[in-house]
């Protein structure tokens, strides 16, 4: 079996399993899985910037929110149809990532983290400031009638699952293709040794900017889909917590692995869901997971797996 066959059969197999899960899982877990898939797309986007290109951003909530509101506002205020609204959300994520990238990529390391954090905070405050249109902290409900695409009502569990799966599958295949492409390898080169790549004739700024824009498109698509599939748009999704969330998923699942963000999202979701049944302080568990991960498994689950058993894992 060639490496390529191995890689593709693994990922397509995972996709097939996830798709089949809707027929097996009880309704509660099926809907959770739909949520997790959308959040995993967000995390995959984060992974493109952080895991592959080495850009540790603390501002991805901004790009998620760009998609969230880029989809929600045209529907809420201008009665747009869902498909163009979704596309606008996706574009909004990419454009905002581009704008932030042009400025933030002049810095690196800690400064980059703080600059992205500050931009995201400014974005969150802007949503509050423009409350006449955004509904501020309270947000608004996406009209159920607007959540129908070509006769498919996205507020129905089955349709929603398929829609979330469609996005998830496209995102995963896209990610896999990207990281195995020559450009993907240049991205990794940026992460590993920027100076050397520069000497080889690559323009690090350009590469990193493209990676960040791609990452923003993923985040925007996830935001737009989350709002449309679950029917609510509000500013709490633009807070710093939603910048930390994808980082957590990626670190847990394995930075720089295609499946890592999804695995991390599944584990984290159920960690919170289950521990909140036993303790008020379930965020303590989140904190402990973060500390434990950077201490004992900085490469995450799949990262460690790759190191030991499966060096071919993309």
């Amino acid at each position: 079996m060639t490496e390529s066959v191995k890689v593709w059969s693994l990922h397509l197999g995972v996709l097939a399993l996830v798709f089949a899960a809707q027929y097996v899982l009880p309704p509660y877990h099926a809907t959770n899985l739909a949520r997790i898939m959308v959040l995993a797309v967000f995390a995959m986007g984060y992974n493109i910037a952080f895991g592959y290109t080495g850009l540790l951003s603390l501002g991805h909530a901004l790009f998620f929110a760009a998609g969230f509101y880029g989809m929600g506002l045209p529907i809420g205020l201008l009665d747009w149809a869902p498909v163009p609204a979704l596309i606008l959300g996706l574009i909004a994520g990419g454009v905002l990532a581009g704008l932030v990238g042009v400025l933030a990529l002049r810095t690196a390391g800690v400064s980059f983290m703080i600059v992205t954090l500050m931009f995201a905070q400014a974005g969150y405050l802007t949503l509050l400031y423009l409350n006449t249109w955004t509904g501020g902290d309270e947000g608004f409900v996406v009209d159920r009638a607007a959540r129908v695409i070509a006769g498919n009502d996205l507020s129905l569990d089955g349709t929603r699952f398929v829609a979330a799966f469609g996005l998830f599958a496209a995102a995963m295949v896209g990610c896999l293709w990207l990281v195995r492409s020559p450009f993907g390898r240049v991205m990794v080169a940026m992460r590993e040794n920027e100076e050397r790549s520069r000497m080889l004739g690559y323009d690090p700024f350009r590469i990193k900017l493209i990676a960040l824009v791609l990452s923003g498109i993923y985040a925007g698509a996830a935001g737009a889909a989350y709002g449309l599939l679950f029917g609510y748009v509000g500013a709490s999704f633009a807070t710093i917590q939603y910048s930390i969330l994808p980082m957590l998923y990626v670190l847990l699942g394995g930075a720089g692995t295609v499946l890592g963000p999804f695995l991390g999202a599944v584990l984290m979701f159920y960690l919170v869901d289950i521990t909140s049944g036993y303790t008020d302080a379930y965020l303590f568990v989140v904190g402990a997971a973060l500390v434990g991960l950077v201490l004992f498994a900085p490469r995450g689950i799949l990262g460690n797996l790759r190191e030991r058993f499966a060096p071919w894992l993309p």
Partner: peptide, 12 residues
Amino acid sequence: HVVIGSAPRAGE
């Protein structure tokens, strides 16, 4: 914000 965020799901 919790009410508005949760009501759609209750309706569904």
